[in-house]
């Protein structure tokens, strides 16, 4: 019942050739593995290679004499990890109540701390080129820690910079 006439085949093949797009070699393109999380009704991302572990927040111990952005400490398998509230560090207006149920532990060779998040979204890879530099809606201190804006206009934070910044570290002298 199908017409196998050669002209039809030719037409189909011609169409196929026209529609065919040469596949861009994905492997060669540098991509960023990003880890997304929500914080105060906004979505942020950091490079996934810095994220060691995501855990529910339980048994937080707050510490006196620490800046507001240090929420406290938690024990993770024998290690002590401090929990940082980026809302305070970024001077974001404290509006609404967020769930803040999960922490994402960031680590590089020397530094380790956990970020407080409302919820974690997951990891996606993003072509490096798709990362945009414009940051029209971001202001204040956040701008300094911005790696770029993702295609879904989520703020991608520079975890390496957060980890190495001395402003995020606490060293009081007596």
């Amino acid at each position: 019942m199908f017409n196998t006439d050669t002209t039809v085949l030719d037409t189909l093949q011609a169409r196929a050739r026209k529609l065919a797009v040469v596949e861009t070699p994905v492997a060669d393109e540098p991509t960023l593995e990003l880890f997304y999380f929500e914080l105060a009704q906004e979505t942020y991302a950091v490079e996934a290679r810095y994220v060691v572990e995501v855990l529910p927040l339980r048994q937080l111990t707050s510490l006196p004499n620490t800046p507001d952005f240090v929420l406290g400490i938690v024990g993770v398998r024998g290690h002590i990890v401090s929990v940082i509230d980026l809302r305070c560090f970024f001077d974001l207006p404290q509006q609404g109540l967020s769930d803040l149920n999960r922490i994402a532990i960031l680590r590089d060779g020397r530094m380790e701390f956990a970020l407080l998040t409302d919820r974690t979204v997951g990891t996606y890879s993003l072509p490096r080129q798709a990362l945009q530099a414009s940051q029209p809606h971001l202001n204040g201190i956040r701008r300094e820690y911005l790696l770029g804006i993702s295609d879904a206009s989520w703020a991608v934070l520079d975890a390496g910079k957060l980890l190495s910044d001395s402003r995020l570290q606490v060293e009081n002298h007596a």
């Binding site: 510490l63 701390f113 570290q169 606490v170 060293e171 002298h173």
Partner: peptide
């Protein structure tokens, strides 16, 4: 135990 690398020294703790 120490307070972790981020809290290098906290007054009184």
């Amino acid at each position: 135990k120490g307070l972790g690398p981020q809290l290098k020294r906290v007054t009184c703790i």
